[in-house]
Computed example of a mutant assay.
Amino acid sequence: MKDERLNKMNQEYHEIPIPAELRQRVEAGIREAKKEQKKNKMIVFVKTAGGAAAAAVIAITVMANSGAGIAHAMAKIPVIGAIAEVVTFREYRDITENMSANVKVPEVEVKNEDGTVNQESTDAINKSIQEYTDEIIDRYKADVESAGGEGHQEVDLSYKVITDSDRLFSIRFDKLVVMASGEETVKIYHIDKQTGKMINLSDIFKEGTNFIDPISNNIRKQMKEQMAADENVSYWLDSEVPEWDFQSITADSTFYINENGKLVIVFNEGDVAPMCMGSVEFVIPTEVIQDIVQDGFVQ
């Protein structure tokens, strides 16, 4: 009867749809456990919560005759990943004559799989955010001082968590500076939940692979298609001023993974198109990068 029940539970476990990466990690741990203590039995239950930010929760039950061998094997199951979240924020606000600023500064906390704070990663991302926002605030204060009350300027910096998947946590900053005209810039910070470390574009690809050329070529293709379809769309491509033309992305180009699991490359206003186009984004088809991107980042 016990064997029948175990077989049934094992069958139910295998019928549960779970991420491939998570299944591989758990099954690797089970194989190790079986090697170290064949007489013991391990049953793994997995539940998944719905939604883009859903995280898998594992409960491991060790059956009869469990001992030090099984416990040691369980310790070898790879960690599933870090947890990153915005825990608080502060806001800098100022109105001086016809100049104003509203700068939101979040504080991010990165936790290890066991719930303890990963202080190194937490300090690193918050230090970067602090330096970035301090620079914006200091620039505004300097502009106010130099204008002597006669300037006209609005500075607005907002943020949002743009990606919170099983593999990646990304927080995006959108800055708008309005004077005679507006200027839009985008800054995005990323945490790889598998390592708990801050990463840039190059880190989502397999080591030693050429991701710059295929992505750059696809962006050029999209630019040409958009311009052919709409006369109001213009990019710096094959223009009369070659040095202005888009050449390629870089290893640390701004990016994010959208809600459909697609890589999106972001350019600030004026980078690859006239200022009137604002900041522009290009969704990269998965087939362009599927052989070179690391598992768990895109779909």
Rank of each mutant, 00 (worst) to 15 (best):
E243K: 12
D192E: 06
V186C: 03
G208D: 08
W236Y: 15
V177E: 12
P242H: 08
T209I: 04
S253D: 03
L168A: 02
S181C: 01
Y256P: 00
K187W: 00
A229F: 04
F246M: 06
I212F: 15
E259R: 10
I199L: 04
K141V: 02
Q153E: 11
N210D: 15
D238S: 13
E243R: 12
F173C: 05
D138H: 10
A180P: 11
E207N: 11
F255Q: 02
I219D: 13
S239K: 09
N200S: 12
N232W: 09
N210M: 08
S181K: 14
N217A: 15
Q247F: 08
Y189P: 02
N232P: 03
K206P: 04
D192I: 00
R139Y: 01
G149H: 10
V186N: 06
N260T: 04
V178T: 15
D245G: 13
A229E: 14
R167C: 01
E154Y: 11
A147W: 03
D138R: 12
Y159I: 02
T250G: 13
I249E: 10
S248M: 09
K206G: 03
G208T: 08
A229C: 06
D156K: 15
D203A: 10
Y235T: 04
T185A: 07
I171N: 04
F205R: 07
S181T: 13
A251S: 14
G196I: 07
Y189Q: 02
Q194H: 12
G208I: 05
Y256N: 02
S146Q: 14
G196K: 04
